[in-house]
């Protein structure tokens, strides 16, 4: 997977998005468990953002982006929300700001988060965006606007390229590092 540069459509969401409600119901985990349905990224992806936009999982295409406002991934460090976004096929989340737990959990799941103040206001639903993690650039090709962010350091690019923290750790262990 080439994550250094990505291209897709942007889906915008206003307001504070709680991991446990707006992004993906926390209560869903209990329900799936009780029904004996395996909790996979793809299964959670079917419910991604449905408390805000019931049709989102049907509309979003693989490689698209979620564009959000302040403190994206509000609330607990529950990473089912990151899995739900990833499972829906979203390539990265672009936001005005986020919090450390959502950022870390997402990246460790192989889902890049890009903090770019002003990005929500500058994006219209369906705009085509290009994101370069290594260069620290978001380009809105539709609106012809460019944003800069602090580039991802090499070790995080490597983690994302590997598909997340655990596939990366597996490689390291196989190579005898631990």
């Amino acid at each position: 997977m080439a994550v250094a540069e990505m291209r897709g459509r942007g889906w915008t969401f206003e307001g504070i998005l709680d991991v446990d409600w707006h992004i993906c119901s926390f209560e869903l985990l209990r329900r799936l468990r009780e029904q004996g349905i395996p909790i996979t990224d793809e299964e959670l992806g079917k419910y991604c953002m449905t408390n805000v936009d019931p049709d989102f999982p049907k509309k979003v295409q693989k490689g698209d982006f979620i564009v959000a406002g302040e403190n994206m991934g509000y609330g607990h460090d529950h990473d089912h929300a990151c899995r739900s976004i990833k499972g829906a096929g979203v390539a990265a989340v672009l936001c005005d700001s986020t919090n450390a737990n959502f950022l870390r959990n997402s990246i460790e799941h192989g889902l890049p988060i890009v903090e770019c103040p002003g990005i929500l206001e500058a994006t219209k639903p369906g705009d085509t965006l290009r994101v370069d993690l290594a260069a620290g650039v978001v380009a809105n090709l539709t609106q012809e606007k460019v944003f800069h962010f602090r580039p991802y350091p090499p070790f995080l690019l490597e983690m994302i390229e590997a598909g997340g923290l655990y596939p990366h750790l597996k490689k390291e262990i196989a190579a005898g590092k631990y």
Binding site: D77, D79, N101, E108, L169
Partner: peptide
């Protein structure tokens, strides 16, 4: 476990949860 690990910041520690990264930390 969880985001409320911050509770222990009251003791003057930098207290955070490892969350999804827990298994990796416990190994490495």
């Amino acid at each position: 476990i969880n985001g409320h690990t911050t509770t222990l910041g009251a003791l003057g520690a930098f207290a955070i949860t490892l969350s999804y990264g827990s298994g990796a930390y416990m190994a490495t």
